[in-house]
Design a protein around this nucleic acid. Structure first.
Lengths: 143, 143
DNA sequence: TCTTGAACCTCTAGTCACTGTAGAGATTAA
DNA sequence: TTAATCTCTACAGTGACTAGAGGTTCAAGA
């Protein structure tokens, strides 16, 4: 193996800077260096980074990923906490979907009725200015 | 009127620090001050801040809100751009919902089959380690 | 009028997960 | 050998706030 940081980036889809960042926050271990100071990675690094990127794509936070990696590094350990991290995240995703759906409804109502004339009679602006025109108790999402 | 920053916060649900932040980025105008230097707000400030908070609840960015406020300040102007800001935002919300739904599917599959034993056979960890076990082409969301 | 304590002030730094830049040095292919 | 490409460190910036330190002002009660 012994690939450069660019090679690792190419293999995993992560950016070079992102890899260095992961090393900085100790999510990736410090690799060996060449005589000239450049990083050289083993096969294990590709696996680990792929794990991280995949978990990021699924929306896990780096802190959650840190815990998941810790578990992955110790195969004998009880995996209940991995399960609960995933369940917790699933719950958050579901909540976000619900909030966004209520948002969508509101926005659709706002947009549908805009006649596109002057701002004085624009429903978009009017709705925003006047909370009563809106059914939003609280969408609970700030995107 | 002539209320303090705390009074304004109480009336709108914004935090005191947030109001000062909005002033700093020129989203809220600089209010009058008491002899001792404390902020005192007129009724217009309550309206404007309510507009901002409402728009934030609906997920608009501060930049979008800046544009919307500009339109609200000029009632004679054409409101097409307000409409298009709202439409654009609606599109983003819809896209996010779609991405989160595909995420939810994936996570549900991951979580459902976890037997809760040791990490060596944990599907959560296995799925993350092995991209092939996962149907995610790209969920497109990083939450 | 004086005292008290809650609310206010400014300023700075931190959050999350990166991304981008500058200027210098290392490596590789022709 | 030289040019092109890659990599290095260090730091600033993103969005939308939030938190804290350390000091000042205001309004209400005695």
């Amino acid at each position: 193996m012994n690939i450069s940081i660019g090679g690792l980036a190419g293999r995993t889809g992560a950016k070079v800077q992102t890899i260095r960042y992961y090393e900085q926050i100790a999510l990736m271990p410090e690799p060996q260096r060449t005589h000239g100071g450049q990083r050289r990675y083993e096969a294990g690094a590709v696996k680990r980074l792929a794990f991280i990127r995949h978990a990021r794509l699924l929306g896990f936070s780096l802190d959650q990923i840190r815990n998941l990696l810790d578990l992955a590094d110790h195969p004998g350990r009880d995996c209940t906490s991995a399960d609960s991290i995933a369940r917790e995240h699933l719950g958050a995703v579901k909540a976000k979907i619900a909030a966004l759906n209520s948002l969508k409804k509101e926005l659709t109502r706002m947009v549908k009725t805009c006649s596109g004339t002057d701002a004085a009679h624009c429903l978009v602006i009017e709705t925003l200015a006047n909370h009563d025109l809106c059914s939003s108790a609280n969408h609970g999402v700030v995107t």
